[in-house]
Amino acid sequence: MKLATYRKKSPWILHYNAGGCNGCDIEILACLAPKYDIERFGMINTGNPKQSDILLVTGPVTKRSRERLVEIYAQMPEPKVVVACGACASTGGVFRGMYNCEGGVDQFIPVDVYVCGCGTRPEQIIDGVVQALAILEQKNKDMEASVRLNTQPIAEDEQLNRRHVAASITPTPTV
């Protein structure tokens, strides 16, 4: 259907800092500013998980942030895309192996786009979000297909069970 192509033109973003150094966060803020202006793509920084499509996560996930991160992810309605901004959100970066860090967002929630760099440049963030739009459209189609064929029960789709995730964390030995 032709209308479906318009759906990816309105991504609303939600930003969460899972323990990073603020560097990527201020670059996300700079993306909103006139020089980069991501509202060109229809993006609004909503700050409300229930109305957002794209979750921008920065920072290596610290032990205290991880529950909030998963909670926020679980509150977002499908279809949703997670963009890990920066080296430490993607892999843990320089913080990998520190005793209070988990090393990477993808240990807890499925990440669709990894944006590299420490700190990420606004151009990279915009590029990552635009890539996320294509994934968002694909997820949208997948969701429609599963509803139409009625093949996938709701319990088995991408929706995360928070308890399940929280239990799977392996305690890293303190150095």
Partner: peptide, 9 residues
């Protein structure tokens, strides 16, 4: 566009 997107969520 927002309207169409919200209808799909």
């Amino acid at each position: 566009y927002d309207f169409l997107k919200l209808a799909d969520k």
